[in-house]
Design a protein around this nucleic acid. Structure first.
Length: 509
RNA sequence: GGCCCGUUCGUCUAGGGGUUAGGACGCGUCCCUUUCACGGACGAAACACGGGUUCGAUUCCCGUACGGGCUACCA
């Protein structure tokens, strides 16, 4: 029988979850759903120094907003393998470290940070690099070279120590990545990574393997930054005797900054004016130790499904030309084979386009329902019929519903200034009498529908001479662009329109 | 520096031994339009380079260049 698919998203609570992380979570979610499996959220908080309060809650809220909820894990209910937070699983890692030591696959190391740093400095000065490996470990302070008595004594004394993996000197490690194919590294290029820290916590490497194994994870889908440590993980599975149940690896391409080179970062968002995070928030910055604010897609006005659709297409593409996918469609179509190998530069313009596509799917009534509270927040009272028509007229121009008001504020208040470019070009000494007559005719008209207004306008032209529609638009709204003129006038009402024209004619010389 | 991964229009990508190298964003032109927008049509725009293999390579192999990642008792 095929094993039930189980995947996990395993972020560290060291800061806000950035969109690269959201995409990793999304691909895990899609893969799990596609195969009818489980999607687990595990919090990897083995680094107590970089722990940021609130980060975990942020991650949970972000996944909820995106609609890609784990069915098991921190914040989403315990499954059979709880707890899902590594700090709460602390007790179980030690035994595996001991197991490795007993089997001769790991050893105690007593070198202090200062000592190792000193060696690194020296090697650097000599244009070399230091690696704690099969060769160098023979000259360092560890249980491989120290007499057994000495090791025991040091441990009994409470001396600080770490546990390192004991890698062979020269051996090829191979594994098959679902996205990249065979990847091969020689252990001579690897170093004896610390598995167990002197503070009694495991490092990522040990905890990750132990958790994936004990949680019966079948596929590890994570960012490309983990590719270099994958061989180490393979060795750990082997040494722990778990190689036959080792998960399939899949290393996702990175999200790159839109301009220049490098990984997408918070700074790029600040600099280029687009969010790099799903939600607004404020969390402690681990570097500066000060709270830092950051902005998110939710508050920028994005629909979660548009945001998710956009992220899905950044590094993955279906078989055809389709670009707009519902979550269900993504689940159906998704496969790791169709994930690209190369990094994707993030494109804020296309991201907006996605939202626009989703915006247009909503009916005017639905848009009005979303618009009413925004207007109320500005102390504007309009009935729903008015707001619906407003939405119908304004939506073609917008990418976001939160742009509606700024795009059409003149629907709610008369203009006080008039686009100087249009006035300069089109306003002349004949304008005032001409538009005064038009206004009289409009005032006298009995029918105020789109077509009736148009007819009145045309009749007035036949009678008094040619009039410019854009100029009339500016008289009414103050700005050069906007929705269809007569539709707009119809909505605004006769009283409002004629009042505005009069006012404009007074203020224009 | 070392190791690993990658490279198709500006960007996201489809494709894959023989194609007019397809789509989307953005950009431009035109049509519609006395305004505005949507829409429609069209257009400019790419296989990093050099060697192989082959009748034929953008596609396979090798190098080079370039880009990225990793190189912590961080994940």
């Amino acid at each position: 029988m095929e094993k039930r698919v189980r995947v996990r998203f395993a972020p560290s609570p060291t800061g806000p979850l950035h969109i690269g992380g959201v995409r990793t979570a999304l691909y895990n979610y899609l893969f799990a759903k596609k195969h009818g499996g489980d999607f687990i959220l595990r919090i990897e908080d083995t680094d107590q120094e970089r722990f940021v309060p609130g980060a975990e809650e942020y991650i949970i809220e972000a996944l909820k907003w995106c609609g890609i909820e784990p069915n098991e894990g921190v914040g989403f209910g315990n499954g059979p393998y709880a707890p899902y937070k590594q700090s709460e699983r602390k007790a179980m890692y030690g035994q595996y470290a001991d197991q490795l030591i007993k089997a001769g696959f790991a050893y105690y190391a007593f070198d202090t940070n200062e000592e190792l740093d000193e060696i690194r400095e020296r090697m650097k000065a000599a244009k070399g690099t230091f690696s704690y490996n099969a060769i160098t470990r023979q000259n360092l302070k560890n249980s491989l070279v120290l007499p057994e008595e000495e090791t025991k004594k040091r441990i009994a004394n409470g001396d600080s120590y770490v546990i390192r993996i004991k890698l062979p000197r020269n051996e090829e490690v191979r594994f098959q990545d679902a996205i990249r194919g065979w990847v091969q590294v020689n252990t001579a290029q690897m170093d004896d990574k610390v598995l167990y820290k002197s503070d009694g916590m495991p490092t990522y490497h040990l905890a990750n393997i132990v958790d994936d194994y004990t949680m019966k994870i079948t596929h590890v889908i994570r960012g490309e930054e983990w590719l270099p440590s994958a061989p180490l993980h393979v060795m750990l599975y082997r040494y722990l005797g778990w190689e036959s149940s080792m998960p399939q690896f899949a290393h996702l391409p990175l999200l790159l900054r839109p301009d220049g080179n490098g990984k997408l970062s918070k700074r790029d968002g600040d600099r280029l004016g687009f969010p790099v995070f799903p939600l607004n928030g404020e969390l402690l910055d681990t570097k500066t130790q000060k709270p830092e604010k950051f902005s998110g897609y939710r508050e920028a006005g994005y629909y979660p499904d548009a945001f998710v659709n956009m992220l899905a297409l950044l590094g993955w593409h279906g078989a055809g030309n389709q670009e707009l996918y519902t979550l269900d469609e993504l689940v159906k179509e998704f496969s790791l084979e169709r994930v690209s190998k190369s990094g994707a530069k993030f494109d804020p313009e296309k991201t907006k386009w996605f939202n626009q596509q989703y915006l247009r799917k909503y009916s005017d009534a639905e848009l009005a329902d979303a618009m009413m509270p925004i207007l109320e927040g500005k102390n504007i009272k309009k009935d729903k019929v008015f707001v619906m028509e407003f939405c119908r007229l304004i939506k073609e121009k917008a990418h976001f519903i939160n742009e509606f008001y700024d795009l059409g504020s003149y629907f709610f208040s008369a203009p006080t200034t008039f686009d100087p470019k249009v006035i300069e070009k089109k306003w002349n000494e004949n304008s005032k009498p001409l538009y005064t007559k038009l206004n009289e005719k409009l005032t006298a008209s009995s029918d105020w529908t789109n077509t009736a207004i148009q007819k009145t306008f045309e009749d007035a032209q036949a009678e008094f001479g040619k009039m410019d529609m854009q100029l009339l638009r500016v008289l009414l709204t103050g700005v050069a662009g906007g929705p269809q003129l007569f539709d707009m006038m119809a909505l605004l009402s006769k009283e409002e329109c004629t009042k505005r024209i009069s006012a404009a004619l007074v203020s224009l010389k």
